[in-house]
Design a protein around this nucleic acid. Structure first.
Lengths: 203, 203
DNA sequence: CCACGTATTGACCCTTTGGTCAACACCATG
DNA sequence: CATGGTGTTGACCAAAGGGTCAATACGTGG
């Protein structure tokens, strides 16, 4: 006995929201069509009606995840710093802070990562998101080098951006490695020392 | 119609080897008891006879993987360097090189990583392996700081070791991000510039 | 050469899951 | 008020996979 009707867009949103809740709670291996349907309080058939296949639903979910996880927001908190080095460091610190919160999103990302080894579409989506992410660090890296060429000789903007992003991604692994979160402060302090700033910072 | 008998240890080894081949070829989602049995040319029942459950087989497989993947070998190639900085950098370079080869083992590791979010035993095994890995960098980090305290003020051995390991793990993600391998050289060059060595190196 | 423990087999069970589909209810329109 | 298109349902299907188990072959000790 079918229930009320709803518009295409509404229902898709409703189902996607349910999928998000399920995924955040039970991870990807708990994300079954039936679970999503139950969470959205609709039938399993309806999920297939709006998302023809589970992969389609996964891709919609990943799109949402990527644009709120693998994005470096360049706001006034970053740009208000004077020197390029300080801006880059502020960006790094901001991203590390974002990692420490949002562990659940991080874990979900790694779930998708593993699926992506198999599914070309997902793999490509992730790869492009990570490329964009790294690209957003590049101008800052270039500015750092330009501002003090003799000290930062032998560096390239590409290399520095890749280094910073690698540190962030490595820290992502550290953050979700075990239940009790790790303290990234000593590491951040070390980076500051290497790149030239020395004032202590909160993490 | 049962086949030949074999000793306990022999059969376990034979099955584990088969499991390794299957895992390296088809990833963890292709690692079914039936696949392992076929690869080992035994029956599926026999796999359960020697590994009472699939999890037990997975743990045996993970143990093998960890001790050949998440281990920093400190050989003469590292220790022959004069300064502590050079030793640490040589170690870093060696590990990055190891990443670039062994992509398959890396991907397998991430498969286990995701499973480990669910399975406490696997999670603990991975966590401990990573802790040991980081610990093996610690003495080198400490030596670096001790050798030039005024330059590396504000650093701690713990922080530097964590930084180096984070870089390696971040690069691991870069390495398997997309099919065609990335070039880590510019990044390594940047690290050399930051930590003080300037001669070019092969990767 | 007999008997007993054990290694080995493969059919079988049960659960889960992605996906299909015929039936049915809802709503707009004529 | 009929009617057709479409949103919606839940039963059903097939495949896959972990695990069980009775039957059976093998080897060894008596």
């Amino acid at each position: 006995m079918p229930g009320k009707k709803a518009s295409e867009a509404e229902r898709r949103e409703q189902i996607l929201r349910a999928a998000r809740r399920v995924a955040m709670r039970d991870r990807l291996d708990g994300l079954t069509i039936r679970n999503v349907a139950r969470e959205a309080e609709v039938s399993s058939g309806l999920v297939f009606f709006h998302y023809s296949t589970k992969d389609a639903l996964l891709e919609a979910l990943l799109e949402w995840l990527l644009e709120r996880t693998i994005v470096a927001e360049i706001g006034p908190d970053i740009l208000r710093h004077e020197t390029a080095v300080e801006q880059l460091l502020a960006l790094l610190e901001q991203e590390l802070q974002r990692l420490s919160m949002h562990r659940d999103q991080l874990e979900l990302f790694f779930d998708f990562w593993v699926i992506g080894r198999r599914d070309t579409t997902i793999r490509t989506m992730i790869s492009q998101a990570l490329d964009r992410y790294r690209a957003s660090f590049r101008p800052f890296a270039a500015a750092v080098i330009a501002q003090n060429p003799e000290r930062y000789a032998d560096m390239t903007a590409e290399g520095l951006a890749l280094l910073v992003v690698s540190v962030i991604q490595g820290c992502a692994i550290q953050v979700i490695k075990d239940p009790n979160p790790i303290d990234l402060k000593p590491m951040l302090q070390t980076v500051y020392a290497l790149l030239g700033r020395s004032d202590a910072v909160e993490v």
